[in-house]
């Protein structure tokens, strides 16, 4: 068994945040915090040093998940995974983020993505099949391709 991941959930819809929390915990990981706004997320990321942050693009008070990614991208060991209904708004380089899960995602997509991300963090490069419904950032795509 692998060491469980420490995950930060950044999502301004309480219902979605709640579901993500449940799905992450069901998969055996730990949610270290749930943030509604970019500022809250950046503060929590520094405090909790999570392995992964699931980040929505549109956050409370008109703040943006891209700002979270910008502020966190140089933080050692924090992998950003966007979870958004607005995947087309992501810049080419994902602002340093590793992947995007477009909304709406099914429970099965999340269940398939978590083990994959766990490999990305704990035992890179990931050997598991790429989950459907998740898209890697071009930089990570190239990194994993070069490593395998």
């Amino acid at each position: 068994m692998s060491e469980s991941l420490r995950v930060l959930v950044v999502e301004d819809e309480a219902i979605l945040s709640m579901q993500l929390e449940l799905l992450i915990e069901d998969a055996g990981h730990v949610v270290v915090g749930t943030a509604f706004s970019a500022a809250e997320a950046i503060r929590m990321a520094h405090e909790t040093q999570p392995d992964i942050a699931f980040v929505d693009l549109q956050l409370r008070g008109g703040s943006s998940g891209l700002d979270v990614a910008r502020a966190v991208r140089d933080l050692e060991g924090v992998m950003i995974v966007f979870v958004t209904a607005n995947a087309a708004m992501l810049p080419e380089d994902f602002e340093g983020g590793a992947a995007v899960i477009p909304k709406p995602f099914s429970v099965a997509i999340m269940e398939g993505t978590l083990p994959y991300l766990e490999e990305c963090v704990r035992r890179p490069p990931p050997k598991a099949a790429r989950p459907t419904g998740m898209r890697l950032a071009p930089a990570y795509e190239a990194r994993w391709a070069a490593a395998s």
């Binding site: 819809e13 219902i15 979605l16 709640m18 579901q19 449940l22 799905l23 549109q58 209904a85 607005n86 477009p102 909304k103 709406p104 995602f105 099914s106 429970v107």
Partner: peptide
């Protein structure tokens, strides 16, 4: 169109979130 599309998808996600959580 972008905004409406965004809302449709977010709402569908919320409906499935509610169903998932209730089912548990």
């Amino acid at each position: 169109v972008h905004e409406v599309d965004h809302r449709v998808k977010n709402n569908l996600q919320m409906i499935s979130s509610l169903l998932t959580m209730q089912t548990r």
